[in-house]
Amino acid sequence: MRLKLLVYGVLLVCCVPFVFPIWWMATTSLKPVSEIFAFPPTLLPTSPTLEAYRQVFELQPFGRQYLNSLYIALVVTIGTLAVSALAGYAFARIRFRGAGIVFVIVLSGLLVPNEVTIIPLYRMFDTFGLVDTHWPLILIPMLGAPSVLATFIMRQFFITLPAELEEAGRVDGLGRFGLFWRVCLPLARPAIGAVAIFTFLHSWNLYLEPIVFLSSKQKFTIPQALTQYVDAYGGPMWNTQLAAATLSALPVLIIFVLAQRQFVEGLAQTGLKG
């Protein structure tokens, strides 16, 4: 009993640096500007106002930008799942010539920071007239460096499946794709869940690429939109930024709360476990 109390106590203390900034972000978005810099900071707004939330939608097509972020993240998630499940399966369960070298090539993608390749990528997409479209934000994460982690997780999952499963399927006359689609993929739900959440979050948080590739407000994504809440002189409108940030974090938080069991257990069942 003592021990339990101690664990709870430690957990509570540990919570502070995680929760307080979010609490502060949410409550400060309700404060008038003059209160934001008050010292000591106030825990609750003394005169709450929804003014900032009104401005979020008034100054920019925030709803539209929200939808952009959402649909890009969804497309990237689905696309990544397809790409990484196929590749992960092949790397895990098929012995084919060149597999080793291909795997090393693919893994190298994990090691190249996006700042390194942003300029050549920009030139490539510009060559095809795809700057200021959502294509770079979809294609690069789906096929490029960020998808490697997904492929890796998928591979680690498929590798744990017993060989007998596939042999049974083979007896039933299934080919490679049949084995993948009918036998292995249905078992991969946990890995799919984990990859989906990773991928969605990555796309949702993407910052450098949208800033470089997009230029019309109608096409912006949320992280980029946050930086646009500035007054006439480039001075940030703090409470409006924080209101927009709160709006952008809430739905993902809710999805996590609902899906977290799937997520944690999914990870536990992939090859990531001990």
Binding site: I105, G109, A145
Partner: peptide, 10 residues
């Protein structure tokens, strides 16, 4: 698809 993506985008 994955290999092509890594070649083209990385």
């Amino acid at each position: 698809p994955q290999l092509a993506g890594i070649v083209v985008f990385v």
